[in-house]
């Protein structure tokens, strides 16, 4: 049995993608180079910066510290999958409205972490937001506007939808 090459199948932003990967291929390289989804970035090599954050089976993780082969059979969401039907996700809107980005390099990771954070905690305090994004480094914004962006998104996501008909 060949244990150095593996055929994997991953659902990426709703689409099933298959490829052969080496054992050592890092998930982030698989995403960027094999899948061609370059929105996920690489900012460091020690699992510190979070630029490579994606959602894997519902959890925000650092794709530089996971092997591609580990993603076999899993569902993955990258920044390219956030907007739906031509509409921005509220976190994307928040970052745009509140000037939560400058150079844009940390932004995809920040967005994915914020997305996950709000799934887990729809009404976070400022402290919870700050702790929540502490695994994502930003060098441009000084974070205050990122916090405001997440607050904006939280507010937007809490706005009640049209009433759901009773069963």
């Amino acid at each position: 049995m060949n244990m150095s090459r593996h055929h994997i199948s991953v659902t990426v932003n709703g689409n099933k993608r298959e490829a052969d990967v080496d054992s050592r291929t890092l998930l982030v390289h698989f995403i960027r180079e094999t899948l061609g989804l370059t929105g996920t970035h690489i900012g460091c090599d020690t699992s510190n910066c979070g630029a490579c954050t994606v959602i894997l089976d519902g959890k925000a993780v650092k794709s530089c510290t996971i092997l591609a082969v580990q993603a076999e059979g899993k569902e993955m969401l990258t920044v390219e999958g956030l907007a739906k039907d031509g509409k921005l996700h509220p976190v994307q809107e928040g970052f745009w409205e509140k000037h939560g980005l400058q150079c844009g390099f940390c932004t995809p990771g920040m967005l994915m972490t914020s997305y996950w954070l709000l799934q887990k905690n729809p009404n976070p305090t400022e402290e919870e937001i700050r702790r929540g994004i502490s695994g994502n480094l930003c060098r441009c914004t000084g974070y205050v506007k990122i916090v405001e962006a997440v607050q904006y998104a939280a507010q937007k996501m809490r706005q009640p939808e049209a009433p759901v008909p009773a069963r």
Binding site: S47, G50, K62, T65, I66, T113, L117, S134, G135, N136
Partner: peptide, 9 residues
């Protein structure tokens, strides 16, 4: 430990 993303893994 580390940060929330690391704590997920």
């Amino acid at each position: 430990i580390a940060d929330p993303l690391v704590r997920n893994m």
